Amino acid sequence: MILGIGTDLANIERIAETLERFGDRFRDRVFTDVEQLKAERRRDVAGTYAKRWAAKEACSKALGTGLRMGISWKDMAVTNLQSGQPQMHLTGWAAERLANMTPEGYEAIVHVTLTDDHPWAQAFVIIEARPLP
Rank of each mutant, 00 (worst) to 15 (best):
T102L: 12
E128F: 07
K74W: 03
L3I: 10
A55Q: 04
H111R: 15
V30D: 02
E40R: 14
F26A: 06
L90W: 04
P103W: 07
L37M: 06
I5R: 03
A46R: 05
L63V: 06
I15T: 04
G47L: 08
K51I: 06
G6D: 03
L98A: 07
R27E: 04
S60R: 12
L37H: 12
A77E: 15
N100D: 14
N100I: 00
A62N: 02
T102G: 10
L37P: 00
T91F: 08
S72W: 08
G84D: 06
L81C: 07
T65Q: 14
K51L: 10
D33L: 13
D117Y: 05
E40F: 10
N11E: 15
A58C: 12
E57Y: 01
A123T: 01
N80D: 06
L3R: 03
T79M: 11
E107D: 10
V125D: 00
G64E: 05
A50C: 08
F26Y: 13
R130L: 09
W120N: 12
V30K: 00
Y106Q: 10
R52D: 04
Y49D: 00
F26G: 03
W120S: 09
Q122T: 12
T79H: 04
Q85H: 12
V125E: 05
I2Q: 04
P131C: 08
A123F: 00
L132P: 02
T115W: 05
E17F: 05
R68Y: 07
R25Y: 01
A94E: 06
G70I: 14
G4Q: 05
V125C: 11
L9I: 15
D116L: 07
L114R: 01
V45K: 15
E35P: 07
T48Q: 10
A129P: 03
A16Y: 03
L63M: 10
A16W: 00
C59E: 06
L98I: 03
G70C: 13
A62V: 06
T113N: 08
P133E: 13
